[in-house]
Amino acid sequence: MQIYINNLSFAYGIKSIINNLSITLNQGDYLVVKGKNGTGKTTFIKCLLGVNEVKPGTIFFDKTDITNFNSWTKFGYVSQSFDNFNYEFPITVSELLSVSSTKQTTASDRLKLLDKMKIFDIQNQNINSLSGGQLQRVFIVRAMLNKPKVLILDEPTASIDKQNKEFFYQTVEDLNKEGITIILITHSDEIEHLNYTHILTMFDDYTNSFDIRNKGGNE
């Protein structure tokens, strides 16, 4: 799926966050978004996912305007905070993954992913008894579950330890090699080892400026 962003601007009320951002991502590209806290990385993602409403004519998926787009199952998404998730009620990891599966996703697909993310052993544990890092990996599995064409990860490694981080980035890279488009938000100190194709740096100044480069360094 091609993602075409054309002069995207976004503001919360009168507070402008994104100003005339344009970028095209083809299927299989790997975009890293970096920038300091509060520069608008999450805001950008929320525009892309239709959570923040944008003007028609600014975002297209395979030539379909985002305002008419409805194939959201093509996206896998791990959000930065899991505040939207209702934890207190008992539900096990495998129950959550099972209700989060579309018809095409089988139980063996789920087990493979659990194994891949090294959380096979906790599948019968309650979500509310998991550690932060385990939880994050469960949500990563959920995002990959239905074989998305585009995987969007908003600081997915924030509570994952170093060892599992390297391993996680390896998994992301493998998925990218399989042709999945990756959009990854992360902090600058982690990006050196990543095999991305595009990088978007957000700056926090009055012009809401940004910088897009391909891996080679030139625009």
């Binding site: 239709g50 959201w72 199952t73 939207n84 539900i91 959550l96 599966s101 579309t102």
Partner: peptide
């Protein structure tokens, strides 16, 4: 049932399940 449970736990992500 599956959809009811999925949306109830997480409204934001339900969209990506169609």
């Amino acid at each position: 049932g599956k959809q009811i449970v999925a949306v109830s736990f997480d409204e934001t992500s339900a969209k990506f399940l169609g």
